[in-house]
């Protein structure tokens, strides 16, 4: 019976994913009929050249980014929640996004003190991506260094939170000394955006997501063992330090590269694993892994659609939408089912 229920759920989610993808591409400031979306995706020409141009150069990259970001953030959330045995853990608990923010803040807010040609170079979108990557890489190295020294995984979590508030504080200091224009630029970055990625960026991001998915696939067995707690997991022959390192490494690559390209997108990483757990009613990571991937992609596509509803001539920040849509859903689910995690 359980087998059947899961097959049904997976089929349903897969269909939902396809539907959301098509709708996502068809929605936007210029509404494109579904039939035309089909046509140009399948390689034949759409009735209007502009439609095809929009789809290939804007809609499709954005939809793919949404899927990659959704999958990436959700999977790292799942990994973190099991590793730390904490329902509040997400991809950013280790302070990675704060590291990114710090990097970007240094570039945007600190550019004023640099010579002109340098600051221009840094302020390009490429410079911001590099800064964000370096920021999260810096935090990643610190976390890996610390987690190798600490026996207790909970301490790693606390250290991550400390990094996070430390970086946050420095960002605050920087904002205090910056101009209104710089502040606005930084705020826009922190609101997140999945619409600005070139195809090259997307290829890079998909590689990062793919590597991490493979790493997590190999962590499924250890994650299942960790459900019993670290001591039992160790007694089952699990090398805790090694598995922990792999999991943290995987999450960091994901959180770092996603934040770099799309800004610190909140909530998805925290909420989607819970949705998967509530929907599939299991802790078995073989099922949760694929469930989380599907739900993550669907939610991100959906949030992106909401952020640019037809008829609006502006796009709402994706970061706000994910929380506005996500928070009530999780609360409702928790209230309607009794048990979390």
């Amino acid at each position: 019976m359980f087998q059947n229920r899961n097959t049904f759920l997976f089929t349903f989610l897969l269909l939902l994913l396809v539907v959301s993808l098509l709708l996502n591409i068809s929605f936007g400031q210029v509404a494109i009929p579904l039939k035309e979306v089909f046509k140009s995706l399948l390689g034949s020409n759409a009735s209007k050249e502009t439609w095809e141009y929009i789809i290939i150069n804007f809609r499709l990259p954005k939809a793919i980014t949404a899927i990659l970001v959704g999958i990436g953030l959700s999977i790292s959330g799942l990994l973190m929640q099991t590793l730390f045995r904490n329902p509040l853990a997400g991809p950013y608990v280790l302070g990675l996004s704060s590291g990114s923010s710090l990097g970007v803040a240094f570039v945007i807010l600190g550019a004023g003190v640099l010579p002109n040609f340098l600051s221009e170079m840094l302020l390009s979108s490429f410079g911001i991506i590099i800064a964000s990557c370096l920021g999260s890489l810096f935090v990643l190295l610190l976390v890996l260094l610390v987690s190798n020294k600490l026996r207790d995984t909970m301490s790693v979590l606390i250290v991550g939170l400390m990094f996070s508030s430390f970086a946050g504080a420095i960002v605050s200091v920087l904002t205090y000394f910056s101009t209104a224009e710089q502040l606005q630029k930084f705020t826009f970055w922190s609101l997140g955006s999945i619409g600005n990625l070139s195809w090259n960026n997307i290829i890079f991001l998909s590689n990062a997501v793919l590597i991490v998915l493979i790493l997590s696939l190999f962590s499924i067995k250890s994650l299942d063992a960790l459900l019993l707690g670290e001591n039992y997991a160790r007694s089952l022959g699990l090398n805790i330090k090694k598995s922990r390192l792999i999991i943290i490494f995987a999450t960091s690559i994901l959180a770092g590269s996603i934040t770099a390209f799309a800004g610190p997108i909140a909530f998805v990483g925290l909420a989607v694993p819970h949705l998967a757990k509530l929907l599939f009613q299991t802790s078995n990571h073989k099922i949760l892994f694929f469930g989380t991937i599907l739900i993550g992609a669907i939610i991100m596509l959906f949030c992106d659609m909401v952020s640019q509803m037809p008829g609006m001539d502006f796009t709402l920040p994706i970061n706000a939408i994910t929380s506005i849509v996500g928070a009530p859903v999780v609360i409702w689910l928790l209230l309607s089912k009794k048990r979390m995690i």
Binding site: L227, L228, G229, N231, S235, S283, R339, M340, I341
Partner: peptide, 15 residues
């Protein structure tokens, strides 16, 4: 070769 039963509580999960 060696299995254990510990006193610690199991973390919450759907197992």
């Amino acid at each position: 070769n060696l299995s254990v039963v510990l006193t610690e509580r199991l973390p919450s999960s759907n197992l």
